[in-house]
Design a protein around this nucleic acid. Structure first.
Lengths: 337, 337
DNA sequence: TTGTAAGCGTTATCAT
DNA sequence: ATGATAACGCTTACAA
């Protein structure tokens, strides 16, 4: 494998000059530049990335932590982030935490070992206190996930409000016994949504049915199971708030196959506006998130920190959602007065 | 940032001994080991990964090239690969080529720059001749994608056979005018499938309708457009082979919304057995791939190459598929005699 | 069992 | 405009 030394020798110049060419620095005559470029070509020379990183103390790489790539929401998020990052010459490393505290910390370790320059966290399962020390090793930006009193930039939606509106919508359709299905209570996000759900109930004087709260309902399969449980144990439930379109789809699917009418017997709302929600029959009411905008902003904010390591107070960017009402919740003859 | 030197000093030992502890090597007394571990802890020491890589010439990282992570097939593939790789202490870098020749080569460059020890290609858009030279820089394994006379291990299904069987199934259901929708003709895979499709037609004496072949039909949206085209331009078409469940879903969706009956007016088969195909109404007939098995084997094969750099002839592992017949193609009263 | 010392391939500093 | 030289932080012969 050819090194910079080999190139220098072949071109009859010094390593320094070759390095200048590699890094597009000034003070190299065109003639010598050409000689070097040709030598590089001849030897098939490629700079060794570990050596560059070691010397320059930069990796031009950022890590994006997410629960699982197979969740389309995060898939789309990472897709946009990568596009944006590459525009700035940055690589992205995808880090799946699978909602594990240990894995989350393992990946934050990348910051300490200098494998990445910065980190984006799109979910947060550890306590913030545990994560904060890693800030010493490099910038962290929160996208999607968020919390109060945290000294890092945050880019996200108002999930409490979104859940609140979804729930109001269900109530407006005449639902009076609502179930709440969540992807897990560990994250701050999940608590925000639950708060919005409860607030809507309270405002309309409806009871919060503790027993009809289910956690760790994430996949389609979980949604199917949840429906069966509702059918057998809580037949009075007439509306379901879910934190994901997959779960909503599972419910719609299983309900249809069990002879329940959606939305008349059971109204369902999902979250994220995934393709799936539109394709289901009936189509699933859901919350649209401005994924690309959030992703782009996140990368911009992180890279700005990387470039200027500015000590300005971290900003917070809040994006707005959109409730997409579809047939899984919209009753033809609304019972609401 | 503490270095190995700092730890050595604090523990009153040499860098070498510290290094031995870091790498779990023998010949360190328990007492000194403890002293070192404590020093590391005290200083919050973490080995610098660039330095290790530079010195050891290994990255313990492999790159997996795929078209797009938002395609659930590849999402699941990468999920399994990552799991397997981490069992061996390897990291995985996800590289989205978006079917671009340039990006594919850019990512292969990771091998040359020593950012990764090996590469898995799950799709191949460049000519093999262009890719082959990269083998000098490290091992490459093909998973999913495959071709003849290539000196690298291959792990894949027989796509020609799968397409052949799907097509026969459509014909058995009484279809006589078949359309063929492909995700792109660039890959060898696509050609294999087309060959299987054609063979089935030929065997049953049906015509191959050149005009009803559509390329670059990938997403749900493409499927919807494809249906509209069929409806307007080729109303005689009564069966469609598609290379993806998304496309099939788009067709089913659009057809239903246009008043066509699936499968009676139009039978549809998809590919990959994605969740979506089961959830559609009607559910989509599809081809199940043994994703986890293929992913696991791929990583094992690659890591074996990494560990032993054996010069044995590269093996080829062919896995078998399973045609899942569902309502998008199975006619209640089969017309076939 | 432990330590010395020589690199790994770059880039940054300082001369020239 | 170009070059010599010293790091960057670690691993690994080899010596002790």
């Amino acid at each position: 494998m050819a090194t910079i030394e080999d190139v220098a020798k072949l071109a009859g110049l010094s390593r320094t000059t070759v390095s200048r060419v590699i890094n597009d620095q000034p003070y190299v005559t065109d003639e010598k530049k050409q000689r070097i470029l040709q030598a590089m070509d001849e030897l098939g020379y490629v700079p060794n990335s570990s050596a560059r990183r070691l010397r320059s103390q930069r990796t031009d790489t950022i890590a994006v932590l997410l629960p699982r790539i197979t969740n389309p929401f995060f898939g789309n998020l990472i897709e946009s982030m990568e596009k944006k990052a590459s525009q700035w010459g940055y690589q992205v490393i995808v880090c799946q935490t699978h909602d594990s505290k240990k894995k989350e910390l393992d990946y934050l370790q990348l910051l300490k070992t200098k494998q990445v320059d910065g980190v984006v966290m799109t979910s947060l399962v550890n306590e913030w206190e545990v994560v904060e020390p890693y800030l010493e090793s490099g910038p962290i930006v929160l996208c999607n996930e968020y919390m109060e009193d945290t000294p890092v930039p945050m880019i996200h939606m108002d999930h409490r409000k979104a859940a609140y509106e979804s729930t109001l919508h269900l109530i407006d359709q005449g639902c009076t016994n609502l179930a709440y299905l969540s992807g897990g209570t560990l994250t701050h996000l999940a608590m925000e949504r639950l708060a919005g759900f409860k607030r809507a109930l309270k405002e309309r004087g409806l009871p919060f049915i503790e027993e009809a709260v289910m956690d760790w309902v994430i996949q389609v399969e979980d949604g199917r199971n949840a429906f069966r449980k509702i059918k057998e144990e809580f037949p009075l439930i007439d509306g379901v708030f879910t934190g994901s379109d997959e779960v909503a789809a599972g419910i719609v699917y299983e309900a249809s196959h069990c002879g329940w009418a959606i939305p008349d017997d059971l109204a369902v709302v999902g979250f994220d506006n995934q393709m799936l929600s539109l394709l289901m029959a009936p189509a699933v009411t859901t919350v649209e998130q401005p994924i690309t905008k959030m992703a782009d902003r996140t990368i911009e904010v992180l890279i700005q920190q990387l470039l200027h390591s500015s000590s300005t107070t971290p900003r917070r960017y809040i994006y707005s959602h959109k409730l997409l009402v579809r047939n899984s919740s919209e009753k033809r003859h609304s019972i609401a007065k």
